[in-house]
């Protein structure tokens, strides 16, 4: 008898929950634009809390470090970023929302990491940063942090169009031993569980993102490599054209979402 009462109560609770969801989903403010939802809206309240408060957000340590690097002279030219770009909060204010962009000198897309290294090699005459090094993560975090809150808005027409199409094709292409495409999880199954993990729409607006699992921030290309490995595919190299094109497509896919760098995810 007791069991029956309990199961009855559970059914009632389940109906109540379903009713709430139907009555109206949580209002995510700027973290949701139409059907486009930031990964923030899939994170747990505890994780969102860490991102919401800068003093709690460990990725801010990298932003701090980037601020130091911004005015640190390096290379034979005897220059620092600040010598040409002055105050980052002004000159870098929309960079995070605009990149990757088409770069005529190399005839393909260029993202923030590649731009930083181009500047370092050509103008500062300094050694390029390694892709996933502390310096590179600090610098990209700092640069993109200047655009925090600016809606993502990349150019996909003109010269960028063929690369956008390539990125889109990559996104929908099944790959690896598991024969899975990006879209299979992040479009068709966003909001569902994949084993113990909740799938998000896989938006790129928060990168470099501090992952609690990594215990440090990581670039979007690191995330791509991780995803590719998980479907048992051979990952591409950091900074490869395939990933930069994909980055362009993802930035467009999340158009209108605010740049969240430095975001925190589980």
């Amino acid at each position: 008898m007791m069991r029956k009462v309990i199961s009855g109560a559970i059914v009632a609770a389940a109906i109540a929950l379903a009713g709430n969801a139907a009555a109206g989903e949580k209002d995510w403010g700027s973290y949701q634009v139409g059907d486009i939802r930031s990964g923030y809206t899939y994170a747990t309240a505890a994780t969102r809390g860490i991102q919401d408060e800068d003093i709690m957000n460990p990725a801010m340590l990298w932003v701090d470090q980037g601020e130091d690097l911004w005015s640190k002279v390096d290379g034979e030219a005897g220059k620092a970023c600040a010598n040409c770009h002055n105050v980052a909060s002004k000159t870098m204010a929309t960079v995070g929302a605009r990149y990757p962009v088409f770069e005529p000198s190399i005839g393909k897309m260029m993202n923030i990491e590649q731009r930083i290294n181009q500047c370092r090699v050509q103008r500062m005459k300094a050694k390029p940063f390694k892709w996933e090094s502390a310096e590179m993560l600090s610098m990209t975090s700092y640069v993109r942090f200047q655009s925090r809150g600016v809606p993502m808005n990349v150019t996909i027409d003109g010269d960028a169009k063929p690369y956008f199409e390539k990125g889109k094709a990559f996104y929908n292409q099944r790959r690896g031993l598991l024969d899975m495409a990006c879209a299979g999880c992040h479009v068709e199954n966003a909001g569902n569980m994949i084993r113990a993990n909740l799938l998000s729409q896989g938006q790129s607006n928060g990168f470099p993102t501090y992952r609690l699992k990594w215990q440090k921030p990581g670039s979007i290309h690191r995330r791509f490599r991780g995803c590719n490995k998980q479907v048992r595919a051979q990952p591409y190299a950091y900074g490869s054209d395939e990933y930069t094109n994909l980055e362009l497509f993802l930035a467009w896919k999340g158009r209108g979402l605010p740049v969240e760098t430095p975001a925190v995810r589980n």
Binding site: I55, M60, L61, W62, D64, Q65, D68, A134, K216
Partner: peptide, 11 residues
Amino acid sequence: MAKNIRPRIRV
């Protein structure tokens, strides 16, 4: 990061 440890505090 470890080479350049810079704490953040809020008081």
